[in-house]
Design a protein around this nucleic acid. Sequence first.
DNA 1: CCTTAGACTTAGCAAATCACTT
DNA 2: AAGTGATTTGCTAAGTCTAAGG
Length: 665
Amino acid sequence: MKSLDGKVKKEKENGFASPPHVKSEPEDDFYHSPRHEKSLKRERDDDNDSEFKPKKIKTENDKKAKKRKPEEVSKGHEQNAGLCFISSPICFGKRGAPEELGKLKWEEERYTDGSKWKFLEHKGPVFAPPYEPIPSNVKFFYDGKHMKLSPGAEEVATFFAKMLDHEYTTKDIFRKNFFKDWKKEMTAEERAKITDLKKCDFTEMSEYFKAQSEARKAMTKDEKLKIKAENERLLQEYGFCIMDNHRERIANFRIEPPGLFRGRGDHPKMGMLKRRIRPQDIIINCSKDSKHPEPPPGTKWKEVRHDNKVTWLVSWTENIQGSIKYIMLNPSSRIKGEKDWQKYETARRLKKCVDRIRTQYREDWKSKEMRIRQRAVALYFIDKLALRAGNEKEEGETADTVGCCSLRVEHIKLYPENEGLEYVVEFDFLGKDSIRYYNKVPVEKRVFKNLQLFMENKEPDDDLFDRLNTSVLNKHLQELMDGLTAKVFRTYNASITLQQQLKVLTSADENIPAKILSYNRANRAVAILCNHQRAPPKTFEKSMQNLQAKIDAKRDQLSDAKRELKSSKADAKVRRDEKSKKAVETKKKAVQRIEEQLMKLEVQATDREENKQIALGTSKLNYLDPRISVAWCKKWGIPVEKIYNKTQREKFAWAIDMADDDFEF
DNA sequence: CCTTAGACTTAGCAAATCACTT
DNA sequence: AAGTGATTTGCTAAGTCTAAGG
């Protein structure tokens, strides 16, 4: 389904036939000018790859000299409060010298030595609230008998109790892992007594927590307001940092609370205890000349370091996989925004050479060398189907999922002929987050023959591409284009598909809701390409019914209004006075209004239906060059708020300012 | 070379909040 | 004012890719 329909359209734009774009902007091989290059370019023309950047671009002189030219001023961009990387005044909300502090984040210096910042100050993390023992009347029973647990064991028991309604507490692996870790927290006596999870009765605990959450919902307005205010205070104190003259929002300043690990899909570690993070687990990163965050009284940080080659503020090692977790900045920050921009610029560079690369991998299908053929077929999949690279994973540590390079023989089936099509490959595997990828695609004969060859004499659980891994592939890609890696294809294909679909689907004479439906459909085409799925919302059927009821009601209302219009017309014909004429006009207006409302509802229903199992958010946030959307909005006079909500506008502030209606990806 | 650690992006789900009815 | 469904935000797992280490 996906390939047959999404694909056909895509390849028109995307395929070999399409000539490279010639844009109005000057382009050369290394420097891509963003919009408004006049003002931004000189420091940002390097956009792409830091390796190739000239030394720190800005100088004071430079800056002054090239500062906004009058013509830009007349364009009014820089006034715009939404202008991309506006810095906030640094002094935590105090007004500083507005002139100095109000400049664009983009106009700040870049670094060429790999540094990410010069100055970094923050307040450190917010720890999870300490464990609050449950009241003594809430009992735990073992083998039918009440048992008072030690605080440590009790805390872990509450984690389990809170999940009781969840299906996974019934899963063997979950229970086994939980029980093992729980026992570690028990006292020797408890351990001796509690030997069988089946005999544990957590229901009172579970009921208690349910009651608690009910109570929370039932709180008075005042109490809720109080909590809100406290959260806001915490946000203001810990939710921001200062990085190079800007007060930036932090993405996740709260440390993850302890609990039971639940991986996605069939995870071998599900149910394990995720331990509480303490100050002595925490590494703080900030600049030497900043005011260092203080650990809570009586505690110490594991380390305070000053590494400006990285962007994180806080890190700790998590105990399930032993991986490192970080506190980093919000997507609205300069450091994230620039990186995002750079990502899309890399994808745009791929656009310029993708024809060449495609020609080459097709050539490579014929190579004498097995590894080259495998590489070429894998790359074809990555390009055509937007598959992920597929790093190898350690067996037994994670759920069994794959990407392109880690596909196994069992994940594909070959049909020389299927449903009237030749050389069909059927894919069926679990990808990231254990989301199923299922697709049947006709491929070139050569690809098909190669796949047969790769599968010869192999077991189902053997690697399909046994001479290939992501590192080999990426090394090759790096030679084809600077900065090229497997994931760039996903970004490129996603963005080019959006642009192309918007062109195809938007019709000038439609109203705004209809245009937005078109936008969503274009977005949807991308989500399907990238296999961004979601579980159908639990309330989906019901909500569809409600909407249908609304539509029916609106239809009735419309026919009523039409009838009234008719009678008032008749009335006006008889009376021929001003008043009744006016009445006709009013009724006409009413009919029009209702028609519009009806249309809007119908569009909404269509949109929702089509979206049942598809998640648009991921592609919108991570794969679609926001400048395409912004340009589309400008071109059709659609307010950008219709496409991006507040958070999204903050994240894409750079694009909102930068892109004009003629932006071409 | 190969493996592992580290840093950073991408991902879907659930809780919180918002907007709208009743 | 409360209830309800839709939307937004928060959370954190699970990827990608590079660099360091052996």
